[in-house]
Design a protein around this nucleic acid. Structure first.
Lengths: 203, 203
DNA sequence: TTTGAATACTGAACATTGTTCATTATATTT
DNA sequence: AAATATAATGAACAATGTTCAGTATTCAAA
């Protein structure tokens, strides 16, 4: 009696259909400007149907967030491959900044948008934590080999994450217009600033 | 014929009445959860009246933002008084972080909330720029006296602002829960992290 | 003081939002 | 074929920002 299995599968497929449409629209127009009705239209279902698969719009956001964390982790794994801990740290930071610049709406909903973070969904926590661990592992390596002017991994993590998140999010909210003269140079300036920082904290 | 002057004054007073009510409600409940109707109720006017003084809800936000920048500048002037450039830098950074921790909703609408930053209102730009200049002046001083491991003021500004903004905003969005074990220690941890950073970039 | 015009304010109305739920359609089991 | 369970609908609700025809108030001229 494989009918329950099929139902299960169909339920998952429907969730993915909705998630994919939501992800697409969030990416294009942002979370706030995307309406449930819009998503329903896109997948040719009625608005009510979405609520059979997701409790509310926030839960839809969490699902997309979890996916996005997965994407970022993929980028890390692809871009940060050096065996030299310091080089790897540089690669991670570069990848993070570029990800934030190239996927602005996505970055927005991953780290900036307001949404109650009392989620303990497995996928969500796992993907998010894996991203962070990628950085933590690298920093642990750096500190163990005495390459940085820091000795506490927790504080090193906070420092570097704050720096790159600060750069990306200030730019995303157009707060760097006062500092950086021309729009086009932003990516270079952000990368350069981050590298200057890394140089300063390197022994 | 002082009638036009009085009208002018009344118009300004009305704007301030609205702004004050808005500020109060933004602070308590945040920008998104504050409705125009709510503000109108609070000042005992009809919703439509507010639109006689402000183009839309965003313009109201700008006004409150400008005020808030002024507040932050006041804090800087009060807290960062040392004549030693490095100490002053430390005081600025501390003041910034504490401001962000003690006025979360305010910080939110100043730096995190989404709102088109194509404003060229005098007050807005002036207050925002003055805040930034307070930092820039201090950093210029530090660099001129060769106290930091940086030589470019612009990049130093970006670095330090990104760091403190990153710390405050990641905490505001509950992204530090994974790193910092207990809620209460957050302020100390943020300050400590910032100071570690300053130590690392100090010659 | 009375009148006419300019100004200030109102609140009902509109479109859009997230969300719910009685009703209808489809699929499964008996 | 009938009865039951599951899935999907779409009208309805309350709340939102915003507009605007109508009403009240204030002011300058007669």
């Amino acid at each position: 009696m494989g009918v329950t299995e099929r139902k299960e599968r169909e339920k998952l497929e429907m969730r993915e259909l909705i998630t994919a449409a939501a992800m697409k629209m969030f990416l294009e127009d942002g979370y706030a400007k995307t309406s449930i009705r819009g998503i329903a239209d896109a997948i040719e279902y009625s608005p009510g149907t979405i609520y059979l698969y997701f409790k509310d719009k926030d839960e839809l956001l969490y699902e997309v967030q979890a996916n996005a964390y997965g994407r970022l982790l993929d980028v890390f794994k692809k871009e940060a491959t050096s065996t030299d801990p310091l080089k790897k740290l540089n690669q991670i930071a570069r990848a993070y900044i570029n990800f934030g610049l190239n996927n602005q709406e996505l970055y927005d909903l991953m780290f900036i948008i307001r949404a109650p973070m009392n989620v303990d969904e497995e996928l969500h926590k796992v993907n998010g934590a894996n991203c962070l661990n990628f950085l933590i592992d690298c920093l642990t390596d750096c500190i163990n080999k005495d390459l940085l002017r820091m000795n506490d991994v927790q504080q090193a993590t906070l420092q570097i994450w704050s720096t790159v998140h600060g750069l990306v999010s200030l730019n995303l909210r157009c707060r760097l217009k006062i500092i950086v003269e021309s729009e086009e140079t932003v990516p270079q300036v952000l990368i350069k600033t981050m590298e200057d920082y890394l140089l300063a904290v390197t022994k």
